[in-house]
Design a protein around this nucleic acid. Structure first.
Lengths: 231, 231
DNA sequence: AACTTTAGTGATATAATATAACAAATGTGA
DNA sequence: TCACATTTGTTATATTATATCACTAAAGTT
């Protein structure tokens, strides 16, 4: 049929890379990041351990692949939620975004922790992850932009922070305002606090429904925006 | 002098345990949790690796020791801050508590992550840690109890959550009210969200002062309490 | 002085990352 | 088709880790 721009060899190459990453993902889900082992992956693929070093420069390289995939996957999930939530009001959209984030994290806790948990010792994230991290946050910023949050910030600290954010964002993304970015930051940190503690099991044996705490905090976040408009 | 209730041997035993933990703590600070190695500790102590298995049943046992110590240390730091902040108003005390928590975490990031970060694969926390985790939160609950936050909760979700917390807390600590516990939870999750992201380096290259974001969020937390009183 | 407990050693099993040397399969040009 | 180069795999090896075991030496006890 059509002449393939990428040779068969290159395709096999990416295929085995994907297969290895899929197994690594299962190991991650079953035993945490420490259970991800090139040797074990090789054994499962019917191949010796060192053979995989043709496909991954090191174990960290493999982890980088997992991280990039997880970022892309989470970003896709959030973007999908944004498209679905766009039907309703911006506030409703934010609710949907927050829910989608928690749902994704609970469905695959280890992957969430791979992104936002304790960094792997000695591991340095490649530069590719920066735009991906931005992609996850972007739908939140878009929804916040659709709200009248830009008006008169209250509190000197709040405005000082927004000034810092404004001067920084102008270099990379001038179409995002400081106040919106500040709200995005707050959403990120609060949701992450809730999700990470839940995913790590710190809410276990505490006799309350984490989902209820989550939605209550989302309410509070939406209230915060409301308070700003009123002032 | 006085006959020692605990024999000299037992003292030596705890001493070497402490020495090993001290080295482990340094390894933790230098290279993260993966750098903590019984063999390396033994080498540094002038002893072979297996010798340390007389003092620690396993590597996880050593980590448990580190975790318990870290909890105690953090609890002590928070309690000290509470004693100092008790001079001022409860609101000022909460500010001091929040500041002390962040300061402690930034001074020893790896220890904070040891407590609240990604759980070590295969590691299960011993039961000793539950009361210690409570001890860290207790000063916050005390300061919140001194505020008039118990009055009429607004929002159905909020009150439903407080009902859950009330019925749960009555079994273990009946002198803490549901509303206070809810506020304590919120303080915990929000501060943890900020501290963990900062400690993990997610705020790097983002052109703002994390301390400013932190204090701004503390302001918001105090405002939340105010909003409840007004209603 | 005899006995028991404790603390250390070296040897060993197992498994991990990673490199190097070498062999085989695969694809490409003349 | 055949020679060559590339890619992919192997085995062997270095290094390091956790952990167990058998054995020895030391310290404390009766």
């Amino acid at each position: 049929m059509s002449k393939e721009p990428v040779g068969r060899r290159a395709r096999y190459r990416t295929e085995t890379r994907e297969e290895a990453k899929a197994i690594a993902l299962r190991q991650l889900a079953e035993g945490g990041i420490g259970a991800v082992s090139l040797n074990a992956i090789g054994k499962e693929m019917g191949v010796t351990g060192p053979a995989l070093y043709r496909y991954f420069a090191s174990r960290d390289d493999l982890l980088s692949g997992l991280i990039i995939d997880a970022y892309s996957d989470l970003a896709a999930a959030v973007e999908l939620a944004a498209r679905q939530g766009d039907q309703g009001s911006p506030r409703e959209c934010l609710r949907v975004l927050a829910e989608a984030t928690r749902t994704w994290a609970l469905a695959q806790p280890h992957r969430y922790l791979l992104l936002y948990g304790t960094p792997v010792p000695g591991y340095v994230a490649p530069d590719d992850t920066v735009p991906l991290a931005r992609r996850v946050l972007a739908p939140f910023l878009d929804a916040l932009s659709a709200l009248p949050v830009a008006g008169a910030p209250t509190g000197s600290r709040r405005s000082a922070l927004e000034t810092q954010l404004t001067t920084w964002i102008q270099a990379t993304n001038p179409h995002t305002s400081g106040p919106v970015l500040r709200h995005g930051l707050v959403w990120w940190t609060r949701l992450h606090g809730l999700i990470s503690l839940e995913v790590e099991g710190h809410f276990a044996l505490m006799g309350f429904d984490p989902a209820l705490l989550y939605t209550t905090e989302v309410d509070a976040l939406l209230d915060d925006i409301g308070a700003v408009i009123e002032s």
